[in-house]
Design a protein around this nucleic acid. Structure first.
Length: 480
RNA sequence: GGCGGCGUGGCCGAGUGGUUCAGGCAAGGGCCUGCAAAGCCCUCUACUGCGGUUCGAUUCCGCACGCCGCCUCCA
């Protein structure tokens, strides 16, 4: 069974057939580093991290390129507000982004590219577009002439005429067509600027992605990703630039777009004032809960961000954690997610991993994949008791399930670590209290025993009584 | 107005032309437990509406209604 993806250009699910068998080049539009990334942005990038991991798991040699837009009007504005330089702003928020993404379990891209490191490449591309008659100068600006690129609109499926009908006010004075977009922007005084044949200035937003993606992956690379709101105009413009410059297509073989995050049924936007930063979510819920939330629905669906959704995610994740701990005890060896596995070809036929793969092969159907793990966990939980009792068959089956569990949860990028006691002192005090509680229980002083248990509970220590004595652990994540 | 997506049981969210079932959360009952917790078992008669195709549609087609996104910087 082949891996199938929904290609936005074709608007259908198609088999992924890379340009070069076994190798996948993917480029994903990263953040503009002018402020903390919000949870929607983070969800998209967590998802592409997941897609990259899954492609690796399926044996593809993946090269994952992501960019930072580190020169941009918003960065300049931000620097002005803070009374500092744009590059200081860009570096600070890039570092914050990397911290947030690490907390969310996203691995760094293989190649991280910054717009400011590629100005000469962009200037070269712009010059080429002018030479090809696809761009023109207007004072110190350079614009792409959309009317000169016949395929303009093919990704977003709209024609220039249609767009003209819905056109809004305020066309830029130098533009020949309202939808012409800037390749190069003349610098105003005090703005960061690079020398160019058209005078000092900076590149437009769209050109960086065309130039950097093809520089590192070549024309006609496999997967280009981003969130759905980039389809128009950003990705449309990337196509126009890259294919216009090359004189042929395709720029990209498969276009993948993530659904946008909604806040309580409405769009998350600055104007509505309902932006939630990824850092805040990580701080409040923990990165792993946020990752579960992000990945538990298909990347293409619009998801609603809410407390309830995060609460559900935390509960589900807790179930996995509990199983990992219990299976580890029953087997006498830790059960922990194992990242970085590659599933050899021909092993798709059996068991839970097979069902997992079948789901993920269908355009990364993570909901189906997660359901498979939940079913594995239930099966495993049923085996716990007989395995602990010494039933060899149950033990073997449980061991096999635990292996699968470790493989799949590792693939998903989870760690499932129980929170550790902050010190040996804490652990010692808890143990001491539990011994006192056992004495109380032995003398049937349940009032005292329950008081100790509930008191510990309020401090975040969960106590469970088992046939083999009490067991304790710290409660899940933040906000517990 | 143009383009696109979606409407599944209390909530979230997969999936399928027909005989058993997604999964999670929540709720109720049971087992276990001194009581809990965790876990397990059971229950909670789902597919927006109306037509059409079909032996049979939640699943295909049409229409209607509703919701959402993009069309301007936007992840």
């Amino acid at each position: 069974m082949a891996l199938r993806v929904y290609d936005v250009m074709r608007r259908e699910v198609v088999e992924l057939r890379p340009r070069e068998p076994g190798r996948v080049g993917m480029y994903v539009c990263g953040p503009t580093v002018y402020g903390p990334v919000h949870i929607g942005n983070a969800r998209t990038l967590v998802w592409f991290d997941m897609i990259r991991r899954y492609l690796r798991y399926r044996g593809f040699d993946v090269t994952y390129v992501m960019n930072y837009t580190d020169v941009d009007d918003k960065i300049i504005d931000r620097a002005r507000i803070e009374g500092t330089e744009p590059d200081v702003v860009a570096k600070r928020y890039a570092a914050m982004f990397e911290r947030d993404m690490a907390a969310l379990g996203a691995q760094p891209p293989d190649i991280l590219v910054r717009a400011t490191d590629h100005i000469p490449d962009m200037i070269g591309a712009i010059r080429g577009l002018i030479d090809a008659g696809l761009a023109y100068r207007a004072d110190g600006d350079v614009f792409f002439a959309v009317e000169r690129f016949p395929d303009y609109g093919k990704l977003s499926r709209r024609s220039l005429d249609e767009m003209r009908a819905g056109e809004r006010v305020d066309p830029h004075p130098g533009k020949r067509h309202p939808l012409d977009f800037a390749l190069w922007k003349a610098a105003k005084p005090g703005e960061p600027a690079w020398d160019s044949p058209w005078g000092p200035g900076r590149p437009g937003w769209h050109i960086e992605c065309s130039v950097m993606s093809t520089k590192y992956l070549g024309m006609g690379f496999d997967i280009h990703g981003g969130a759905g709101d980039l389809i128009f105009p950003h990705h449309e413009n990337e196509i126009a630039q890259a294919e216009g410059l090359a004189g042929h297509g395709p720029f990209v073989r498969y276009w993948l777009h993530a659904g946008l995050v909604q806040m309580a049924g409405e769009k998350m936007s600055k104007s509505v004032g309902n932006i939630v930063s990824a850092g805040d979510v990580v701080a409040a819920w923990g990165g792993e809960v946020a990752r579960y939330w992000a990945l538990s629905a298909s990347y293409r669906t619009q998801v609603v961000f809410s407390e309830d959704a995060l609460t559900d995610a935390r509960a589900a994740l807790e179930r996995w954690r509990t199983f990992a701990a219990a299976a580890g005890r029953a087997l006498g060896a830790p059960v922990a997610p194992r990242p970085g596995l590659v599933r050899p070809p021909g092993t798709e036929g059996r068991g839970y991993p097979a069902r997992f793969v079948a789901a993920m092969d269908d355009d990364f159907n993570s909901a189906g994949a997660f359901a498979t793990i939940h079913e594995l966990v239930r099966t495993g939980n049923r085996l716990l008791e007989p395995a602990e009792r010494g039933d060899a068959t149950a033990r073997d089956e449980l061991g096999s399930l635990a292996d699968d569990f470790a493989e799949l949860t590792g693939l998903l990028g989870f760690r499932l670590e129980a929170p550790e006691a902050s010190s040996g002192l804490v652990a010692g005090l808890v143990e001491l209290l539990l011994r006192l509680r056992e004495e109380a229980r032995a003398s049937r002083d349940f009032g005292r025993a329950d008081a100790i248990r509930s008191g510990l509970g309020e401090l975040g220590v969960v106590v469970e009584d088992t046939p083999s004595g009490p067991r304790w652990h710290l409660s899940g994540g933040p906000e517990d």
